[in-house]
Nucleic acid binder design. Sequence first.
DNA 1: ATGATCGCCGAACGACCTTCGGCGGATCTG
DNA 2: CAGATCCGCCGAAGGTCGTTCGGCGATCAT
Lengths: 163, 163
Amino acid sequence: MDALDEAILRRLQRDGRQTNRELADAVGVAPSTALERTRALRARGVITGFHATVDPSALGREVQALISIRIRPQSREAIENVRDSMAALPETLGVFVVTGNEDVLVHVAVPSTRYLRDFVLDRLARRKEFVDVRTTVVFDYVQPREQSELPDTTGRDHRTSSG
Amino acid sequence: MDALDEAILRRLQRDGRQTNRELADAVGVAPSTALERTRALRARGVITGFHATVDPSALGREVQALISIRIRPQSREAIENVRDSMAALPETLGVFVVTGNEDVLVHVAVPSTRYLRDFVLDRLARRKEFVDVRTTVVFDYVQPREQSELPDTTGRDHRTSSG
DNA sequence: ATGATCGCCGAACGACCTTCGGCGGATCTG
DNA sequence: CAGATCCGCCGAAGGTCGTTCGGCGATCAT
C-alpha cells in the first residue's frame, strides 16, 4: 500500500469503470503497471469487487428505514440466521450486527410507509425470536466512496487509561 | 424496467466490470442491445455509478462502529452540515439522517478501539452542537447487492387503518 | 390492411486490454 | 566499496472488446 496503490484505489472507488489507460494516465504510470497494481489489490483482498450502484428511489422505493431487532435467545446461530435471512430480502440494503440493547439493525428501502408498515408487522414482528422490533425512518443516507488508509497517528497520545 | 433491464441490473450489481459481451450473452441479447440498455439505465438514474468495493480490514481498519449523535439546534442547516462533515471524514463509511431520539447515525471503520475512543472523544464529543454521542460497536456488516424492483403487492391488503 | 414507430440485431472500425521480454534502481553480500 | 540479485516499471504487439450505424421485424394505431 504505497502512494500509487492509494491513488489507484481512490480513483477506482470513484469510478470503477474508467479504462485502464485513463487510470494509468491519471496516476502517472504505464497501463501495464496500473493493471498489475489493480490486480494485486484484488488478489490481496483490498478490492473485494466492482459493483453498479443503484438508486432505490429510481426503482420506486422512496422510503428508507432502519429496523432495530432484539433477538432471543441471543445465540450465535440465532443472530447469524437473522443476519443472513434479512440480507436475503429484496428490501434490504444492509445488515448490522451490533452491541447494545439491540442485536441487529436492518437498513431497508421500500416503496411507501404503508409497505413499510406491512413489512414490519407481517414479516418481522411475527417472528418468535424477535422480542423487540423498532423502526426508524431514514431521511437521508450518504455513502462517501473514498476509503483509504487512515493518516498515521504515531506520536499522538494513544495510551489507554489503564496504561 | 422490463425483465431485461432487471437481469442487466442484477448482473451489474454483482459484477460491474464484466465485459459487455459476457453481459449480453448472459441475458440473451446482442452486445449492442445490452450496451444500449445499460446506458439507458445510467441516463435514467437507476444506475448512479460503478465503484470498487474496498474491505476496510484489508486496510488495517478492523473495528467498525455506529455513532449516534443528537444535535442542537435541530435545524436543517445544523443537521446537513453534520451529515456532510461526517461524510467527508476518512473514517466514515456511511451517514444516516434519521427520525427518533438521535438525529444522525455515522458508520465508521477504524484501526482499533483505542483509535475509536480518541476519534469519539477528541473529534466528536467536543463539538458544541453535539449534545449527545453514543457509540455502538459493529460486529458484522453485510451488504446484499441485489437491488431490484420489489415484487408487486397489488391485491394485498394495503388499506390504511384510517381507510 | 397499411403505415409508422420502436427496439433488436450484426458487421466494421477504432480503441483497448493483456502479455512478455528487457531495463533501471535499490538492496544485500562479500 | 564493488558486484550480483531482485523487484518493479516500461513499451510494443496481438487479440479482444466497445461502439456506431444501417437495416430488419414486430407491434400498435389508424
